[in-house]
Every structure is written in C-alpha cells, then in structure tokens.
C-alpha cells in the first residue's frame, strides 16, 4: 500500500508543471552559465567566422562547380556550398574536424574539477539530487548548445543560399544537411564526454585541458604517422604478394586508422555531403565494372555511414561509463 502511495506521490510530483525536476533545473542553470561566459562567446565567434569564410569562398566558386558536367554531384547545390573550395580555405566540414574537438574540450574540461575547486560541488551534492544528474546535466546542456548552434548555422546557410542563388533546396539535401548536423553534434559529444571524464580524473582544470588537447593532437597528427610507420615495417614490399593480400592489408590499415575519432568523422561527413561516394574502403575492378558514376540515394549513404556513427556513439558512451564509474562512489570533499 505504501509503495503504491509512494509511486503516486512521486508521479504527481514529476508531472505537475510547477515543480521542476532537479535535472532540468541543473540543465537550465548550466546553459545560462555557458551563454553568459566569455568562453562560449569566443567559441561562437570562432565558429561563425569559419562558417562565413568557407561559405563565402564556396559561393564565389559555385557557378563553375555546378556547371561541371563531369561531376555526378553537381546538382546538389547546397551540399556543394558546404564542400566546395578553391584551395585557400578548407571547406566547412573539414574545418569542423578541428573545431569540433576544440568546442567539446573547452565546454567540458573544467566541468567537475572547477566545481570542486570552488567548493560548490559539496554544496550541490548535499542537495537531494542524484549524482549522475550532475554529470548528465553538464553533458546535455553543452550538447544542446552546440546542437542548436549548428542547426542555426545550417538553416542560415540554406536560407542564405535560397536568397542568393534562387534555387530551391531538395528534400534529400535537407535530410543530408540535418544528418550532417546531427553527426557533428555526436562528434562534439565525444570530445565533450572525454573532457568531462578528464575533469573528474584531474583535480586541476589546466591539467585536464592539457591532457584533452594532447589526446586530440595525438589522434589528428601523430596517430596517422604511427600507423604509416608500423605499416611500413610490418608489411613486406608490395610486389611480393597477391591482390587479395593487398586488399587485406589495406583494410587492416584503414580499420586501424578508424580507431581515431577524427577519421570516423571525416569518413562519415564525406559520405553524407558528397553523395557519389559509394564506399569507404577499397573497391575491386569487378565491383566497379557495372557501376555508373552517379550519386547514391540518402538511405544508402546512411547505411555506409552507420558503422562510423555507431563507433563515435560507442566511444562517447565509453567515456561516459568511465565518468560514472569514477564519480558515483567518489568521496565528495570540499
């Protein structure tokens, strides 16, 4: 009887509008804290500047690109806006490959340790809220911000594109651009999860920031070098083995490279934004024989991208699971 009464009580307390769940109170506070901070302003400017730069370069070249008859993707005007470049500036999705980690790391590197340093962690944990709600609220609030920022940018680009070119956007392009936005958010989410984990491990915010940047640098710069180096020493000279061996080794190297989140992101964005990409691995001559160079439908592109996306989500989950494990039973001391 008591259990039923409790159930009713808790139910009624969560459904009444006037009594907010502590989790959403925390998310709201985090978001307003982020928005008011200088850090977010700087990030916002950085992203806006990149976006403006790469889009304006693309706009000035769009006429030639769309007129290029050899390009099977020439009809996707808006995707071209995101991917075209004349060489001076990398396109937006490549920029995001660098910016994403910076955004994620800078929004999360001091999530827990700064609260501990300021003595607010003990106070919040002495309130009737679950510990995981704190972690989750940090994650959800930063990701909400990033997600809405990217969504706004995409809408801005579509709207601006319609105004300037006068070409209406196709439904498929809309879906591709939105999937790209979701993908970017997931990518930022991974770095956010990683930096929150580091903010739990390290007591000093600067240590955790430095470690996060170190990990990012390792994956973007050194990881590829190491894999190339290993491949050079382990795999014998190319003329000594058959075609199947070549494919096997090639696959192995690609799979090793895909342990790096930025590689996953590059693979996935390329497939989404350039519809004629049909495979992320090597293709044999037999497979290519009957194929007409034409764009893939969205469904097939999503199928190709799916392993990459689930890899990113899995990596984020791993960071989060580790954060929970470390934080849930830790002693909270001021």
């Amino acid at each position: 009887m008591k259990a039923i009464k409790d159930l009713f009580d808790s139910h009624s307390s969560t459904t009444t509008e006037t009594r907010p769940h502590p989790f959403w109170v925390m998310v709201r506070k985090e978001i307003s804290g982020h928005i008011r901070s200088w850090r977010f302003l700087v990030l916002l400017l950085l992203i806006l500047l990149t976006f403006w730069g790469s889009i304006s370069v693309a706009l000035s070249n769009i006429r030639e690109v769309v007129a290029d008859a050899k390009d099977p993707d020439r009809l996707f005007l808006y995707l071209k806006l995101l991917t075209t470049t004349e060489g001076t500036l990398p396109p937006f999705h490549v920029f995001l490959n660098f910016l994403g980690p910076i955004v994620g790391i800078s929004l999360g590197f001091d999530a827990i340790n700064s609260e501990q340093q300021n003595g607010t962690l003990t106070r919040i944990m002495a309130q009737p809220v679950y510990r995981d709600n704190l972690l989750l609220s940090k994650f959800v609030s930063a990701l909400t911000l990033v997600g809405s920022l990217l969504l706004t940018l995409s809408l801005l680009m579509i709207g601006g594109g319609i105004l300037i070119t006068g070409v209406l956007i196709e439904a498929e392009e809309v879906f591709r651009i939105f999937s790209f936005t979701v993908l970017c958010t997931v990518y930022v989410g991974f770095w956010l999860g990683l930096s929150i984990l580091l903010s739990i491990i390290f007591k000093q915010a600067s240590t955790s920031a430095l470690t996060a940047i170190g990990i990012w640098l390792f994956f973007t710069v050194f990881y590829q070098i190491i894999i190339d180096f290993l491949a050079g020493t382990v795999i014998p000279a190319a003329n000594e083995f058959s075609q199947t061996d070549v494919i096997r080794y090639n696959k192995l190297i690609l799979n090793l490279l895909r342990l790096s989140p930025s590689q996953l992101f590059t693979d996935a964005t390329t497939t989404l934004l350039i519809p004629s990409v049909r495979s992320l691995g090597p293709i044999t001559m037999e497979q290519m024989a009957g194929a007409i160079p034409s764009p893939l439908p969205l469904r097939d592109s999503l199928m190709i991208v799916w392993p990459q996306v689930s890899g990113l989500i899995a990596a984020t989950m791993m960071c989060f699971a580790a954060s929970y494990y470390l934080f849930m039973r830790r002693e909270i001391r001021g």
Binding site: S13, R19, P20, V25, Q127, P128, G334
Partner: peptide, 30 residues
C-alpha cells in the same frame, strides 16, 4: 541541511540566484 567548512558559490551568479538555484534543486516550485 549541510554547510561545508569551505562554502563556495557560483561566482557569476548573484547571492539571490545562488539561493534560488538550491531552492529549486530542493523541489520548490518556480
């Protein structure tokens, strides 16, 4: 109610906002 030996607040919020935040965490309606 527990007051730790080194009380700290969110420095970017006012005293009232800090207090209201804790109040809301305790389920006081907005």
């Amino acid at each position: 109610g527990y007051m730790p030996d080194s009380v700290g607040f969110y420095d970017t919020m006012t005293g009232l906002e800090n207090l209201m935040y804790v109040g809301e965490l305790n389920g006081i309606p907005r």
